[in-house]
């Protein structure tokens, strides 16, 4: 068996799943984190496709700028509490008070 085939199969599965999860996420913050993860996996995908240049660009943009940009934007969004009342924010509040 081609040793790359197993890796590629896992890679494609993970890539598609992360992409779907990031798109379908109702929680914006979770979507952002999934998008950061998507960039990492996509970079490996470019590597397997034999395009290290694109992988390098994806690494630099995805890890260095896009993630920070999305997180900073999320922090400025108004009305995040209405987005999804429940598990996420209570946990944050509790942890924040513990500090």
């Amino acid at each position: 068996m081609n040793p790359g085939l197993l890796f590629d199969a896992v890679l494609v599965t993970v890539l598609l799943w992360v992409a779907w999860a990031a798109l379908a996420s109702r929680d914006l913050f979770r979507g952002i984190v999934l998008f950061i993860a998507f960039g990492l996996v996509l970079s490996m995908g470019w590597v397997r496709l034999g395009a290290p240049d694109v992988a390098l660009a994806e690494a630099a943009i995805g890890a260095g700028i896009a993630g920070a940009l999305l997180l900073a934007t999320w922090a400025r969004l108004p009305g995040k509490t209405e987005e999804r009342p429940g598990d996420d924010l209570e946990g944050q509040e509790r942890d924040h008070e513990q500090r």
Partner: peptide
């Protein structure tokens, strides 16, 4: 080798960020 202006500029920009 793989590399170039865009990748290099993005790394520098990340330091700025």
């Amino acid at each position: 080798r793989p590399g170039g202006a865009f990748q290099a500029g993005a790394v520098l920009a990340a330091a700025g960020v």
